[in-house]
Design a protein around this nucleic acid. Sequence first.
DNA 1: CAAATAGTGGACAATTTTATCCAATATAAA
DNA 2: TTTATATTGGATAAAATTGTCCACTATTTG
Lengths: 144, 144
Amino acid sequence: MFSKACEYGIRASIFIAEQSLIDRKVSLKDVAEAIDSPAAYTSKILQKLSRNNIINSDKGPTGGFSMGKKELEKVKLGSIVFAIDGESIYNGCGLGLKKCNEKMPCPVHNQFKMIRDQLKKMLETTTVLSLAVDYEKGFSFLKR
Amino acid sequence: MFSKACEYGIRASIFIAEQSLIDRKVSLKDVAEAIDSPAAYTSKILQKLSRNNIINSDKGPTGGFSMGKKELEKVKLGSIVFAIDGESIYNGCGLGLKKCNEKMPCPVHNQFKMIRDQLKKMLETTTVLSLAVDYEKGFSFLKR
DNA sequence: CAAATAGTGGACAATTTTATCCAATATAAA
DNA sequence: TTTATATTGGATAAAATTGTCCACTATTTG
């Protein structure tokens, strides 16, 4: 469904959000350990999230990754997916056709539209904050 | 959502089904042209579908690919997806966790479950035959 | 200012997926 | 039985994704 990079990105964001809730910056190493991901690769993904203003990154000692209160309230799952995987989830044809639309639909156009619309709605309404709160309470997990 | 191989597989199946409706066997070349896919790669995919009894393949002159009446009525989209992409669509965790279930859910487990269940239902109820009929009527397209 | 720390950016490597080529096999028809 | 045709299977190759390494920059602290 999503690329591995995107999966890491979502997991990392939730961890960073949860730590930001208790006013903690986290290092790349912290993130990689928390979500059980390859550190160097995760670094690339965090850079992308940072450039997209989804997370903050600070250099130097006492540096690290974090999310501000505003970001915490604003950032939805969809923003992360879009930043990493682009709009393919929204626009792409289920059968890989370049031009697939109402006028010239692929054979499963309508069937997929239903599901895609649900997914879209879910991504656009689910906040990282809400996921971070659940995670903080021990209701969900980020590795294994 | 699906691998490219799976997209080709679905498109190929629909074309073969539609031609079988008018009692025509089609060659690899026919298929590749009809769905605008690389022939040699498509060949590998058709082999897989054939081994999974989703389509028939006959060698030699007058050979080619086809679907029998029974297959036409029986084969669902899900069979094709399963034959090519395996069960990842059904079982895989949305965030890539190995062990993600009700007891130890990833942070988006429930949100994804909703959508995955819908997708599953759609794949298990949509017959290739119905898609082939629409395609035959010119209601849908397999290339571009 | 020097030293230590933490993210950045670029090059590179491994793996997976997608795609190609060709000899071998099977089969129908002449 | 020979020939032509069409799929099969194996070996490779190309492309995309995933993953690693390291020197560089920015920044805090002593």
